[in-house]
């Protein structure tokens, strides 16, 4: 076969997928209060005495509809778990490596995931007290909290 080696090469391409995500009524209220008031709100089940952040319209324990029981929680909390993202891809909000943590906010009973910055990866630990840093430019997304920083 008379095929020279330089006939092999790589073509760069991409696949673009348009999509839309509907936050729902509960999710929208959560995001709107975050965006307009810089306040983090959860939904409380009075029967189980649990506060869910991020909010859910139905109690995950007893199944009760709780969509109107809004309560405000603090913008401070405790890290209950974390991982270090070391792989970079274009859709990440920040460049790898970065810390993705589960944070239980003061006043909430469930943890939610967000980025922790302002601490070296080797010093990161479960139990760290953190405080939300709100974004200056809002986008109606969870990134209206820029990240969490070590508190104090």
């Amino acid at each position: 076969m008379n095929i020279e080696k330089d006939n092999q090469f790589v073509i760069e391409g991409k696949l673009a997928l348009p999509y839309q995500y509907f936050s729902g009524r509960t999710g929208s209220r959560f995001l709107i209060r975050l965006r307009d008031d810089k306040k983090i709100n959860g939904l409380k089940c009075n029967a189980c005495n649990k506060v869910f952040v991020p909010p859910r319209s139905t109690c995950e324990i007893c199944g009760e509809t709780i969509q109107d029981n809004w309560v405000e929680v603090k913008d401070t909390g405790t890290v209950t778990g974390f991982t270090v993202v070391r792989y970079s891809e274009p859709h990440q909000p920040v460049k790898a490596p970065y810390i993705l943590a589960l944070i239980k906010l003061d006043g909430a009973d469930t943890p939610f995931a967000h980025i922790v910055q302002g601490i070296a990866i080797e010093n990161m630990k479960v139990g760290l007290k953190v405080k939300a840093k709100f974004a200056e430019k809002t986008t109606s997304t969870i990134m209206d909290i820029n990240c969490f920083m070590p508190a104090g």
């Binding site: 991409k14 673009a16 997928l17 999509y19 839309q20 509907f22 009524r25 709107i32 859709h91």
Partner: peptide
């Protein structure tokens, strides 16, 4: 109500 419209681009 909030709807996010994005174009996810995979290299």
């Amino acid at each position: 109500l909030i709807v996010l419209k994005q174009i996810l681009s995979l290299p």
